[in-house]
Design a binder for these strands. Sequence first.
DNA 1: CGATCAAATTTGAACGATCAAACTGTGGGT
DNA 2: ACCCACAGTTTGATCGTTCAAATTTGATCG
Lengths: 336, 336
Amino acid sequence: MTEAVTIDDVARQAGVSRQTVSNVLNAPQVVRESTRQRVMQAVEQLGYSPNSSARRLRTRRSSTIGVRLDAYAGGISGVVLDRFVHALTERAGARRLRVLLYAARTPEDEISRWDELMRGGDVDAVVISGTFHGDPRTGWLLGRGLPFVSFGRPWGADDIDDPAHLWVDVDGAAGTRAATTHALETAGPRVAFLGWPTGSGTGDDRERGWRETIGPRAGSASAPRWAVQEGIAEARELVGRELARHEIDALVCASDSLAVGAHLAAADLGRPHLPIVGFDNTPVVEALGLSSVEQLPEQVAAAAIDLITGPGGEIEARAATPGAAHALIVPRLIVR
Amino acid sequence: MTEAVTIDDVARQAGVSRQTVSNVLNAPQVVRESTRQRVMQAVEQLGYSPNSSARRLRTRRSSTIGVRLDAYAGGISGVVLDRFVHALTERAGARRLRVLLYAARTPEDEISRWDELMRGGDVDAVVISGTFHGDPRTGWLLGRGLPFVSFGRPWGADDIDDPAHLWVDVDGAAGTRAATTHALETAGPRVAFLGWPTGSGTGDDRERGWRETIGPRAGSASAPRWAVQEGIAEARELVGRELARHEIDALVCASDSLAVGAHLAAADLGRPHLPIVGFDNTPVVEALGLSSVEQLPEQVAAAAIDLITGPGGEIEARAATPGAAHALIVPRLIVR
DNA sequence: CGATCAAATTTGAACGATCAAACTGTGGGT
DNA sequence: ACCCACAGTTTGATCGTTCAAATTTGATCG
């Protein structure tokens, strides 16, 4: 529709050569200030914008990050990932990087998607999330040399300190530590915990924060730990049963879903004001007036982009500088 | 890292020319079956995958759709958009299209983002959502000839039947019609409506479905209509006040947020079983056991892709076939 | 004034694919 | 035997940019 403006058009207009125009845009320090201005003026005048396919073909880099959009899990927790992706997009834009989405249903599916994207030169790096024990993905990525950063610590076999494995994560233990401390100070000594069955890295991490805080002060009998697979309904049922048996002062939860279920159970039993702290700070707990631990996905995204781009702001297929291979974001407790 | 396999490598291996390999992949019908097989074998053997930058440079199309990831609005309704984007990505992948994200905070911001993406040859089309009265975006897109499809009817000035403006939407009135009918049949004649202030296209549409169904049967006095800006907390407060004054049998809401607020208010007043129907079918209402109207974002996404790709499966800068310029998806009532 | 060297700019080639046109070979009709 | 039509294949040019090397410009110095 619109006539294409090429670098040659700009060059002609400014009375210089192709390469000089290119230099003005990519390496301004090598051109004389006066020519730079003349070229920039021509760029503005013609509304020139480089054709990125041509640039990518020549430079052999796409300046694009692949992000998997997880299948809709049906849980409240999806909101965190959405905020993360959004923040990632904004942050990437500031670095002149693009974000390309892809869909995959299984790890194997995701790997074959990477294979296409990588060989087609569509992405320079990918962001992965939800790594688990025995995850085949990290091995593939390391083996093929596709740079990546994972949202979530590598709980699996490979070394958590491996400088080739970049990761960012939220310090779950610090979050529940803050939540538990606050509950102890404002509600009473009997602060219970509602989490998931042992075995999930994230869940264990969050439980640890509670245990470390509660441990020194009270015996475990008065501060029970409950676990449920997931889901508001299940949590509501379990907490309803347990509240009838145990007397507690407050409850710290591993997720907002659990917190909502617990709140409903408490309300059922005529205790709508039982202090309950969630994790993720989703709109629902905000509306219910529950406290929650805010993950700060924006900071996580910023850290991810910082890790994956080298000092020059470009994505490099390199092992990161030792000691700078990961970032652990301390979440913030929102008190309501 | 990995050595690049080009079309020439495949050609040499199969003992044919570049172009024949290209034809095997892009126009198999012009190649003899025996050569096709030989070439395919070489492709498999070498693990060839076309360099998409080169292809895009030559063909002058990116086979990419731009999607704006809205700033996290903090509402439950975001879930629908997320499911839509996810479905869009899956569907696009099946058509060998890619989905590129971009972030923008204002319409003007979004326009300048399009300008870059379009001139850089990064996208062939964009998907927009949330069009409003006096929206400057559609005009820009039509003027610049960037193909697009909007999720949401054009409520603004331009003709809703304009074949150049492709759109997909959910038939909100049909949704509330189903919800109201169900409530009338199972609960009683006094079915109230909780929506937003008049003026938002979506809200008015959903209200219309209720009004059309309720109208013929009952006087408006016994079936009040309430409105609140948005938000669980506000809805809870308003419904709490109104329920004390009006006796109703059921409540149809314009969104799940409103439904949750209403449910909490009803529970506060000792009526936790007041039938309430939401809109969006988010996990929260599922957990609360409320009925809701399911938007079927997957169908909406499929329709969007179908509209934006011509009969050949390619994105064309053309006015759509008259009569096929939009799709209205009928949502489904989930009864709980 | 010519030599020297760095800074600034230009030129030719290349990235990997597809398009358009030219070229083969094969079979049929007269 | 000739020409023609046509399916199947190859050749040369091209998309718009950046890299690498070559070239020009300009200042400095003996």
